[in-house]
């Protein structure tokens, strides 16, 4: 129960005011209104509840159903696909794509997160210092995050082009040979990871920046009086106090990164020869990009992705709760 309350009061100063206003409201509600108040409350909620059921719960259910039946194009349209239990999952696990796709998903996610977070934190620390234009420059850093993914992905595609790309032209200035960023199996995964890091830095910067802002300057002053150097202040003050914000930043980053599809699909389509295929692109290829779509296995791969996201979400919530108890 702790999570939704936190989400509800995520608005900064609003929290305190709301927290203070909460008890009398509840008391009055029970005494004077009771039931009718509940009716009104649910009447306002009803559209979203219906919406969630129709457009979230049903697609999810459909997806699970797809993954446990043997669907063909015909039965997909007309229904009546036979129940096959976990056959689709067995097919997926036995597929030679499974191992590499899992590995690529993990590498893509972990490397992206590590660099996005480290660079985002470094930039956030830099921007907390006061200098001219700092607010404007910080705003400009948001640009990569706001651009449509197809825009950034196609721009990176052209920049990483083997013969005419600006990246190779730049490396050429230092005497480097031509790197086949998108067409060599050795480099394709790194290329899409680099593009994804670039897109993710702004989010990390903004969230970590506001986290840093929330740390009282007096703590730093106290640490400084106690003789802590800049390095010590970072490791002994900033880092521990930033831990809750860091945790949520990493969790959201993880959930987003696991889902990343557009960037990879537009830049490499998961290729060449599957060298940048992740679960997300694999699922799409199975379901939509083949002449004969295999909806069952596609849904199975998608469900594995959800399970991965959920596992990390639960780990996070558990860690939060443990912290709350201690």
């Amino acid at each position: 129960m702790s999570t939704p309350t936190r989400a509800r009061t995520g608005g900064g100063t609003a929290v305190d005011r709301n927290g203070a206003a909460l008890p009398p409201v509840r008391g009055r509600g029970i005494r004077r209104r009771g039931r009718p108040g509940q009716w009104a409350a649910w009447a306002f909620l009803a559209p979203v509840v219906v919406y969630l059921l129709v457009f979230y719960a049903y697609p999810l259910y459909r997806n699970i159903d797809l993954s446990v039946r043997h669907y063909t194009v015909r039965s997909f349209v007309h229904g009546g696909a036979p129940f096959t239990g976990l056959d689709n999952y067995r097919t997926v696990f036995a597929d030679p794509t499974f191992g590499p796709a899992l590995w690529h998903t993990v590498v893509f996610t972990v490397v992206s997160l590590a660099f996005q977070f480290a660079i985002g934190l470094a930039l956030a620390m830099f921007f907390t210092q006061h200098f001219r234009l700092s607010a404007t420059l910080r705003a400009l850093f948001l640009v990569p995050w706001l651009l449509p993914l197809i825009v950034s992905s196609s721009t990176w595609s052209w920049m990483l082009n083997s013969e005419s790309g600006v990246v190779n032209a730049f490396l050429g200035l230092f005497g480097a040979g031509q790197v086949n960023w998108l067409t060599s199996p050795d480099w394709s995964l790194w290329s899409v990871t680099i593009a994804n890091i670039w897109i993710g830095i702004p989010f990390n910067l903004v969230v970590l920046y506001s986290g840093l802002q929330a740390i009282s300057p007096q703590i730093y002053e106290a640490a400084q009086l106690d003789g802590a150097g800049a390095w010590q202040r970072f490791w002994k003050v900033t880092f521990p106090l930033l831990r809750p914000v860091s945790a949520i930043t990493l969790l959201l980053g993880l959930v987003y990164t696991l889902k990343v599809f557009d960037i990879i699909w537009i830049m490499t389509r998961g290729g060449p020869s599957g060298s940048s295929t992740t679960f997300a692109t694999w699922s799409y290829r199975l379901g939509f990009a083949n002449l004969l779509p295999s909806f069952g296995p596609a849904a199975a791969v998608g469900n594995l992705l959800i399970v991965m996201a959920l596992v990390f979400g639960l780990v996070y919530i558990r860690a939060q709760r443990r912290q709350g108890l201690s």
Partner: peptide, 8 residues
């Protein structure tokens, strides 16, 4: 993931 929603 968007791909799940898309399939549904």
């Amino acid at each position: 993931p968007g791909i799940i929603m898309a399939m549904g």
